[in-house]
């Protein structure tokens, strides 16, 4: 019998293959839990992948199907993550996260003199390279690499 570290959900969203330890950051970026929401959110860290290929985090959000654009926001933190939309215990849809061309409000610019740090404006970056990941601040043109954003 299969042992569940996180129990299966009836309806909702499962985010799998998150790099170990990054699940809290994933929830933060997705704005979960939403204020006032009573949806159950379960989170497992450092789960063995089962193929001897190391560990991963898993997040399960009950009774909420996240939109694709919302999910793509986590591409910076969890580039290899997969998304399962669950309906009545079955996987209704499955996809891997796509890195959008423009990333808004997910990471802060790391240039201490960037205007976005002192003004009421969301950060905005353009993806200039996908592999290796390089993004550039739309305002000050400062460049961030994968290590700096994850």
């Amino acid at each position: 019998m299969k042992e569940f570290i996180v129990p299966p959900i009836r309806n909702g969203t499962v985010i799998d293959h998150i790099p170990p330890g990054k699940s809290v950051r994933v929830l933060e970026v997705l704005g979960i839990p939403r204020p006032g929401s009573t949806s159950i959110v379960s989170l497992a860290m450092n789960v063995e992948t089962g193929r001897g290929a190391g560990r991963k985090d898993i997040v399960k959000i009950e009774d909420r199907e996240l939109e694709r654009e919302e999910l793509d926001r986590i591409a910076l933190i969890a580039p290899g993550a997969t998304i399962n939309i669950i309906r009545n215990y079955d996987v209704a849809r499955k996809h891997t996260v796509d890195l959008p061309d423009t990333i808004e409000g997910v990471v802060q610019c790391q240039n201490p003199d960037c205007v976005t740090l002192s003004e009421p404006v969301a950060s905005r970056f353009q993806v200039t390279s996908r592999d290796p990941l390089v993004i550039r601040c739309d305002y000050c043109r400062h460049v961030l690499s994968q290590e700096a954003v994850a």
């Binding site: 205007v115 003004e119 404006v121 305002y139 043109r141 400062h142």
Partner: peptide, 29 residues
């Protein structure tokens, strides 16, 4: 006052804004 509020206000007073500001990227904003 933020730069953002100053710009929103002054852009109603003039036909063009010349801006000098110490923060990187302030002109784009």
């Amino acid at each position: 006052e933020t730069l953002s509020d100053t710009i929103r206000t002054v852009s109603h007073y003039a036909d063009l804004i010349v801006l000098r500001h110490p923060k990187d990227g302030s002109a784009r904003l």
